[in-house]
């Protein structure tokens, strides 16, 4: 072995040492770059706009907290927040119950793996159409002359079309449940599928009732799935402004809707400040959830 190769070797080993030392950073860098471009930069721009000066028509660069003060001094902002929270809670409870039942059925009631996967894939079927179509399809169903109302009138339950089916918070929540339940099913299915069947067998052998198994094994072990599903649902509900506008006939408010009204009218600083507030609230909520359940530990 010549000296030259030895030198070369030590050099390469130096390089590989550097690689080894910082390999974690190198491996993380693509994600960091992507997150920086698609998450940090836009949020920074929104933050910047939120302190710009808005004179009622025109946005000018500057520094002021007027848009934030405006938000907190308006009764309607609180109302919008309350609407967002209320719609989220109702949607969350229903999607959670549905998601839990569906996942439980898929994991524990079905035996063949193939059948399980087949049924799981069935839950994805609604996603073969676009979200707008899925949402709009509720209009002919729930409308005054819609399928549901015609049916109810035909069988004589009501005499006049039920108005609150469409262009109401009810319609909005129905469409949310339709569109978002899968986001609860998927993580719950994933988590439940990992529960060792022997554990349940063992519990049964010890004389545990079905309810006890559910209460002390399945629910606690499904927690990470519930949390992930909740994060999905809160993010989807709190940021939607299309379904709420179309299905409430622009007669229901939410924070995201208020952002979109401000944005589409060209009120950028106001829209930006409200977006920042929405983002902060979402982060607080998700952060709080993470404290309750350590997802990493549980996965």
């Amino acid at each position: 072995m010549s000296i030259q190769t030895q030198n070369q070797e030590s050099e390469t080993s130096k390089i590989s040492e550097i690689f080894k030392k910082y390999s974690a950073y190198f491996q993380a860098s693509p994600l960091v770059i992507v997150l920086f471009i698609f998450a940090v930069v836009p949020v920074a721009i929104i933050l910047m706009y939120s302190v710009f000066i808005f004179d009622g028509f025109v946005t000018r660069p500057g520094f002021t907290f007027t848009s934030y003060i405006d938000f907190f001094s308006e009764w309607s902002s609180l109302l919008n927040l309350w609407h967002t929270a209320r719609i989220f809670i109702i949607t969350w409870v229903i999607t959670l119950v549905l998601g839990f039942i569906i996942s439980y059925f898929l994991v524990f009631d079905l035996i063949s793996f193939r059948v399980k996967v087949f049924f799981f894939l069935l839950t994805v079927v609604p996603f073969w159409t676009s979200g707008v179509v899925r949402m709009t399809s509720w209009i002919p169903f729930l409308g005054s002359k819609g399928i549901l109302n015609s049916f109810l009138i035909n069988i004589g339950i009501v005499d006049e079309p039920v108005q609150f089916f469409l262009f109401s918070e009810f319609a909005v929540i129905v469409s949310y449940i339709h569109m978002f339940t899968l986001f609860m099913v998927a993580p719950l299915f994933n988590v439940m599928a990992r529960i060792n069947p022997n554990l349940i067998e063992a519990a049964k052998d010890q004389g545990a009732s079905g309810f006890q198994i559910l209460r002390f094994i399945i629910i606690p072990m499904s927690k990470p799935g519930i949390i992930i599903g909740t994060i999905f649902i809160v993010a989807l509900v709190a940021t939607d402004f299309t379904a709420i506008r179309i299905l409430s006939g622009a007669q229901s408010g939410s924070l995201a809707n208020s952002v979109s009204v401000a944005f589409f009218n060209g009120f950028y600083p106001i829209a930006a400040a409200q977006s920042v507030i929405l983002l902060a609230l979402l982060l607080l909520f998700v952060g709080g959830l993470m404290r309750v359940v350590d997802i990493r530990k549980q996965m």
Binding site: D70, S76, L79, H83, G253, S254, V261
Partner: peptide
Amino acid sequence: VKKWSAFQAA
């Protein structure tokens, strides 16, 4: 526009 937003939420 502010009032409009409040009207929607009302």
